[in-house]
Design a binder for these strands. Structure first.
Lengths: 157, 157
DNA sequence: CGCAAATGGTTTGCATGCTTAATAACTGTA
DNA sequence: TACAGTTATTAAGCATGCAAACCATTTGCG
């Protein structure tokens, strides 16, 4: 039955996802390296350019989907590089508002260009229906992720 | 035109890939945590159970698609845990052969089960043609990855 | 009001990836 | 044989993610 036949592909699907995702990111990184942005530092800058202000660190945590300590450290680096600055939030003394400096604004535009260029290049020749088919599968997988493993599911379904 | 309409989705495709890949891996990690395997340490064990011996470290580097220093460090950990051992290669005094201990063999089977269970669960309800549509897109993206960025491609095509 | 719980941020320590550089051994060519 | 280049492994240091523990502040409830 299909299960055995599909096993090889199934086994590699998660692997494939991770590999492609990493390769994709590496492309962006490569393009942004010349702007002095290393690894993940461009993501906070990108999102700071997209989110409606005021942006608290927690907003970045949610947008970047990384944990608060990681965001804090990235912002330390970016602040030292004069790309962002933190200011107190008059509404809530616990929180800090994060903004792009002028240099940061410029960088954010470059990041956006680079990200779009990579996306255009990598998705070249792929039709919208094909993309949507992928999204459909992704959504189903995400749905399956939420069902706690308590239901071992299609063990031989 | 399609470009603007697709922009939102295109922008997020790489993001989506990375996120799904990470989530997938986290599922496996969670299931293997109870076996004392943390993070990425289960992958060398899995592949050692799959590759035809003898397995040199270089073979693992190629299979795991991570760099040689990373493999070396992981093997240090696994060796300390008595899951693998290194022995000299009589064919080539530079290289070392890596093997699973008996405990490692047992662990490899558990890892394989966990990986398959997660795969079955996450791909539940997704048909083979849908999977193949995804693979087709992945392959096209991989092909586009290889074309060096020299051709900026669909900048406004 | 006053205290417990939740929330925002930081610090610390660990896991895992990479790159660069060193060392040892092999290979090919003159 | 000898020497240059390649290959296998390791070592050292950096980047980035996480979780746990901590402080300050805010919120909610008696």
């Amino acid at each position: 039955m299909s299960d055995l036949e599909r096993n090889e592909k199934e086994l590699s699907f998660g692997r494939r996802l991770a590999r492609l995702g990493a390769a994709w990111r590496r492309q962006v990184d490569r393009d942004l390296h010349e702007y002095g942005l290393t690894e993940a530092t461009w993501r906070p800058v990108l999102y700071l350019g997209l989110l409606p202000p005021p942006v608290r660190q927690t907003d970045l945590v949610r947008a970047l989907e990384i944990e608060a300590p990681s965001v804090a450290r990235l912002l330390d680096v970016l602040e030292r590089r004069d790309l962002v600055f933190r200011s107190p939030d008059s509404e809530d003394k616990r929180s800090k508002l994060v903004s792009l400096t002028e240099k940061g604004e410029r960088t954010a535009r470059q990041v956006r260009h680079a990200v779009e260029a990579v996306s255009n290049r990598l998705l070249q020749g792929i039709s919208t229906p094909e993309l949507q088919a992928c999204y459909s599968v992704f959504e189903r997988i995400e749905a399956n992720l939420c069902q706690r493993a308590s239901a071992p599911a299609g063990e031989q379904a």
